[in-house]
Design a protein around this nucleic acid. Structure first.
Length: 632
DNA sequence: ATAGGGTTAG
């Protein structure tokens, strides 16, 4: 008797099981085809209705139908219905196959219900590659990277071999170079390196760790490739401010017959941004028009115009953009502020508060920068003190730095020191450098020495600190101290980076280094330069040798000043461009006081608009004044 | 049934 009963139970199970096996399709409920057709039509209410009827009649559909039903729930974002399907599938002690459970796990992942997915996953009697990969990709998607890596280990321990899906998912979660090296060799071992998904994920992972050569290595071995692989390697260089290489790769991509898509163009624009290539950026803009609706791409375009100092274009783009997000607003606010339009930046922030997205950490930085630039000490304090209450953002090191800059401009050195002591995070090199800059501008020798020493404590090789300190001593004609600083620099093997300026003329970059004589038009440039200096001297200009590092004889320091790279670039710009064209120069070091004055006077005399971008700021010279307000 | 690339500051 007992045996018969057991057999009946088994039969029952077998019968209900057979409903989901395609091998026993003749047992599948006749409603199944109706259910399927509702699912294909994405008619969720009717599909659920059909399911109810089947439940009442005690019949089941097959796995194909259930997985279609789950797709339908996903399409409608119908969480409740999805859970219903889940319960239905497991009702009456039915044990669905791994395939179907995977579909359910995936459903919970897509609904962002990771815990539910994990519970279901844990209960699975057997898990295959797809089960594991679904969970790993879920965790790497939400950046629970440790969890994703951990799951890979468990998976391997379970004897399941990862496939290309697994590797491309887990590579996104990889944070340590040693792990990445292991993953890479694992990929080579199973021969998955030719998969384009794995390849781009590998490139991206190396890029995230700053291992660009490794990334390039993976790329160069490419036998198989698609546009995403190209985009990965181009983005890698663009993001690590090697715009030159990024643009070269872009050209090779085009030569290889691939078209640029949104992602490619975003990286190209970023490369133009970092190289200040306005004209090339404009050319890229033409291609951007094809992807009019792409927010990320438009943000990159906006940033390019801001960073290249063309605010007219930036405003045009910004006003035309349909769905502006925090990044669009932040970019525009910071762009206006950096280019000297502080009031406009603050006005824009006001309209953002009314009709824009919620400001974030970076937005506030732009706002503080605007205050700093315009010397609005009280407003700066207000925004700084209220950012926590108004926007729930804790001031970070960068915010402190902006405030310090603001106080430094206003000459409030004591308040700077107080604020540094008040900082919630440890002051870093940038903090002290800001103090040092202020000390130089306001000639506070003692405090400067203190700041410079703090910098060298943190970074033995900070060229800037030594140069600034030496400049301060030079300003006070303390040549012994200058010599001492120079001796320390020599001992530590520190050399002042040579000043270099670039200008784009006819799609060509012309580079100038201090005292450079290699430019083909150097004679003409020098003739014109001497002409300007003579004329300026006649009108009362005195070379400001305070910025010269070494205690050379006056004549020699005048010579070196006269041939500072930005002067050469300015003169070259004047020779090359018609009057109405803005002369745009970018350089690797901060502009010196003498060149700054030179630029102001020449801009006025020649009625030119000159823009010089240094590593931190922008200087718009027009009508004898500079947008920086003579503080930098 | 499971996978890869792009935007703001520093």
């Amino acid at each position: 008797m007992k045996g018969v009963q057991r057999r009946l139970v088994l039969l029952g199970t077998a019968w209900s099981r057979s409903c989901s096996y395609s091998a026993f399709q003749h047992y599948v409920a006749p409603e199944t085809s109706l259910l399927l057709s509702h699912c294909y039509n994405r008619d969720l209410p009717r599909a659920m209705q059909t399911l109810d009827t089947m439940e009442r009649r005690g019949v089941w559909a097959d796995a194909i139908a259930y997985s279609e039903l789950i797709k339908c729930c996903l399409a409608h974002k119908a969480v409740k219905e999805g859970k219903h399907v889940h319960n239905h599938i497991f009702s009456n002690g039915y044990q669905p196959k791994t395939f179907l459970v995977n579909t359910l796990v995936n459903m919970y992942v897509k609904f962002n219900l990771l815990e539910e997915a994990q519970i279901l996953f844990d209960k699975m009697p057997e898990r295959n590659v797809v089960s594991w990969t679904t969970m790993i990709s879920a965790y790497s998607y939400v950046k629970l990277n440790d969890r994703a890596m951990e799951l890979l280990v468990f998976m391997l321990r379970d004897g399941i071999l990862p496939n290309m899906y697994t590797f491309s998912s887990v590579l996104r979660a990889c944070e340590r170079l040693s792990d990445l090296t292991q993953l890479h060799s694992g990929i080579l071992k199973v021969g998955l390196e030719s998969d384009v998904f794995v390849r781009s994920a590998l490139i991206d992972a190396y890029s995230k760790m700053g291992e660009l050569l490794e990334a390039l290595g993976v790329f160069r071995e490419m036998v198989t490739g698609d546009s995403v692989v190209w985009n990965s390697i181009i983005a890698a260089f663009a993001q690590h401010t090697d715009g030159d290489e990024a643009l070269c790769l872009y050209k090779s991509m085009r030569r290889a017959g691939f078209l640029a898509d949104q992602s490619t163009l975003t990286s190209v624009l970023r490369a133009c941004t970092s190289l200040s290539l306005l004209e090339l950026g404009r050319q890229a803009h033409v291609h951007v028009l094809k992807f009019d609706q792409d927010l990320i791409l438009n943000n990159a375009l906006l940033d390019m115009y801001c960073k290249c100092g063309s605010m007219e274009d930036a405003k045009f783009i910004f006003n035309r953009m349909a769905g502006k997000d925090v990044i669009s607003w932040s970019t525009m606010i910071a762009g206006l502020a950096q280019n000297g339009y502080s009031t406009e930046a603050l006005n824009l922030f006001d309209s953002m508060k009314v009709s824009g997205p919620r400001p974030n950490y970076i937005t506030i930085l732009g706002v503080l920068f605007a205050c700093s630039h315009a010397g609005l000490v009280n407003e700066g304090w207000y925004y700084f003190r209220s950012m926590k209450n108004l926007y729930g953002i804790d001031p970070g090191r960068e915010h402190y730095c902006c405030m310090l800059d603001l106080l430094g401009r206003a000459g409030k050195l004591d308040e700077m020191v107080t604020l540094i002591h008040e900082m919630t995070c440890e002051p870093d090199v940038v903090t002290w450098r800001t103090l040092l800059d202020a000390c130089r501008a306001h000639r506070n020798l003692d405090l400067a020495t203190y700041a410079a020493k703090e910098i060298t404590k943190l970074d033995q090789h900070d060229t800037g600190a030594y140069v600034l300190l030496s400049n301060i001593y030079a300003n006070s004609k303390r040549w012994d101290d200058v010599a001492e600083v120079r001796r320390t620099m020599r001992e530590r093997g520190i050399r002042k980076e040579p000043g270099c300026s670039w200008i784009e003329v006819n799609n060509q970059i012309h580079a100038f280094i201090v005292g450079d004589k290699s430019h083909p038009q150097i004679d003409e440039i020098n003739r014109k330069l001497n002409q300007y200096i003579r004329w300026l001297t006649d009108t009362g200009y005195v070379p400001d040798t305070n910025f010269v590092l070494q205690d050379l004889g006056e004549e020699q320091s005048e010579y070196s000043l006269r041939h500072h790279s930005e002067k050469l670039a300015i003169v070259f710009g004047i020779i090359s461009f018609p009057r109405e064209k803005t002369i745009r120069i970018w350089k690797n070091l901060k502009i010196c006081g003498d060149c700054h004055m030179f630029a102001k006077l020449v801009a006025k005399q020649e009625q030119r608009h000159i823009v010089i971008r240094d590593p931190i700021r922008y200087h718009h010279f027009q009508d004898g004044v500079c947008s920086c307000g003579d503080y930098w």
